[in-house]
Design a protein around this nucleic acid. Structure first.
Length: 152
DNA sequence: GCCAACGTTGGC
DNA sequence: GCCAACGTTGGC
């Protein structure tokens, strides 16, 4: 089993929105970045655990845990001309974009802020705390996962 | 295939 | 809301 971190803007889709979904699951659609796409298409497996991270908000940080419940499949919103993330270059016969479904597991008792994570020397290799990082999905090492969970 | 222009991300 | 960093696009 592997561990991941996925960023989302709470104003758009936050941890409480996931919790409120039917069956608490939701397709992680709209990712239009190749690195992130590759991870969802090839590497994320059913049962993998995910840190749910709030970005672009007052206190950016990890707010909850989710899990992958459906492995990579084509992001159908790319085929819909009315969808926000429509991409005419993605052909249903040869989809360009992929997504996974995630399910709410739990909220953390508190937000583990980016600021706090940055201060931990063991986490300095995480792309998350690196300057200029824009990756919205990234792998988390087991020891990093356990360390962060231990901070809760 | 280079690289300038442009758009987006995301912390602050 | 600003702006640095970075990915993508498209002209050449």
């Amino acid at each position: 089993m592997a561990y991941w971190l996925m960023k989302s803007e709470p104003d758009v889709f936050g941890i409480d929105d996931l919790k409120a979904c039917v069956k608490k699951t939701e397709p992680w659609d709209g990712v239009r970045n190749y690195q992130a796409r590759n991870m969802m298409r090839d590497e994320m497996k059913k049962g993998d655990l995910v840190f749910f991270y709030h970005s672009n908000c007052k206190v950016p940080g990890i707010v909850g845990v989710a899990k992958v419940v459906k492995q990579g499949y084509p992001d159908f919103t790319a085929f819909d001309p009315d969808a926000k993330y429509y991409d005419p270059k993605s052909d249903p016969d040869k989809p360009r974009w992929f997504m996974v479904d995630v399910q709410f597991v739990r909220k953390l008792k508190r937000t583990i802020s980016l600021d706090e994570l940055k201060k931990i020397p063991e986490l300095e290799k995480m792309p998350l705390v690196r300057r200029g990082n824009r990756l919205s999905i990234m792998p988390v090492q087991v020891d990093e996962w356990e360390l962060i969970i231990g901070l809760e």
